[in-house]
Simulated scan of single mutants.
Amino acid sequence: MREAAFVRQNKDKWLKFESLLQNKTSPTPDELSALYIEVSDDLSYAQTFYPKSNTTAYLNGLAANAHRKIYHSRKEPGSRLISFFIKEFPLEFYKHQKQLLLSFLIFMLFAVVGAFSASGDAAFVRFIMGDEYVNMTLQNIAENDPMAVYKKMAQTDMFLGITINNIRVSFMVFTLGIFAGIGTVFVLMQNAIMLGSFQYFFYEQGLLWESARTIWIHGTIEISVIIIAGCAGLVVGKGMLFPGTFTRLVSFTRGIKSGLKIVMSTVPFFIIAGFLEGFVTRITQMPDWLAILIISASLALILFYYVFYPIYLYKKTNKNNEPGLHTV
């Protein structure tokens, strides 16, 4: 890419960063960090292709100034962690809404495929879920306690086991994004087909509502966060396939960093889902209104944190940090 085109493509971002650094009310380290990462990547690109240019000198000065401000006012680790979840991550996640939507659509498509396959072949559910699980569930249905599987294990053991397994799955979905996103799609497909065939199995038994009101108490967050982990894997795949103005290695590295932040953000939600599955889902006799309330609150929490709040924060930050009139 010619230097002039590189400057035109990124000038607005640099001006915004410069304006933020020159603001009389000192910006927070987290506000600086978000843009500092991007400017550092631009500096690396400029040093590679325009090593002795004015653009490289300008970006080097901009990055050095930001580095001083960030580390001069660096926060304590506890405060830093809170800031990551409240501001830094949601602000960055705004850029990945398309990957989130794609992950959701992929999951829903294969969930429908799973349900359709189960409807056309009675043996499909056994192939996906296993004979042991299907036979156990049929026995529970015969004993008039179809959701008894959630009562088999001790509460704390179930909470810990489910939480650790879900976190493991989310990291696997993210990590497999290194195969150009194909590995991520494959794991999403597996989980979605399993869910679709599982729900159809209960529908066939005349227990769709009974299963849904019970399973989705924890499943609303659990399934949502697997989709979000899928978003992380797709971000990695996008970084590899579509480097844009960066080298493929730089773009891939940026994708890994962004994807890792996404998957790290899911850990608290998996803990919540594990708690619900270990301690709440087993209460199969709870009234419908309470189950619906828990499911609705869980869905609202996910939508707020991963969809509405990032949009709100992005618009607010852009409004408060309009670039001034400077020249590059």
Rank of each mutant, 00 (worst) to 15 (best):
L176E: 02
L176K: 00
G177A: 11
G177K: 13
G177Q: 13
I178S: 00
F179C: 01
A180Y: 13
A180D: 00
A180K: 02
G181T: 04
I182V: 15
G183V: 09
T184F: 11
V185T: 15
V185I: 15
V185D: 02
F186L: 13
F186W: 08
F186A: 12
V187T: 09
L188H: 11
L188C: 05
M189L: 14
M189Q: 11
Q190N: 14
Q190K: 12
N191S: 04
A192G: 09
A192K: 06
M194K: 05
M194F: 05
L195Y: 01
L195G: 00
G196N: 05
S197K: 04
F198S: 02
F198H: 06
F198C: 00
Q199T: 08
Q199Y: 01
Q199F: 11
Y200L: 13
F201S: 07
F201R: 10
F201D: 04
F202W: 05
Y203L: 13
E204M: 06
Q205F: 02
Q205R: 14
G206Q: 09
G206W: 03
L208C: 02
L208Y: 09
W209K: 14
E210M: 01
E210C: 00
T214N: 15
T214F: 01
W216A: 02
W216D: 06
W216I: 00
H218K: 07
G219V: 05
G219L: 07
T220N: 04
T220Y: 00
I221T: 14
I221C: 06
E222T: 08
E222F: 12
S224I: 10
V225K: 07
V225Q: 12
I228E: 05
I228W: 09
I228L: 13
A229H: 07
G230V: 10
G230W: 12
G230C: 04
A232K: 04
A232Q: 00
A232G: 10
A232V: 04
L234E: 11
L234D: 10
V235R: 10
V235N: 10
V236D: 03
V236P: 03
V236S: 01
V236E: 06
G237F: 08
K238A: 14
G239P: 12
G239Q: 09
M240A: 15
F242W: 10
P243S: 09
G244L: 10
F246W: 04
F246C: 00
T247G: 15
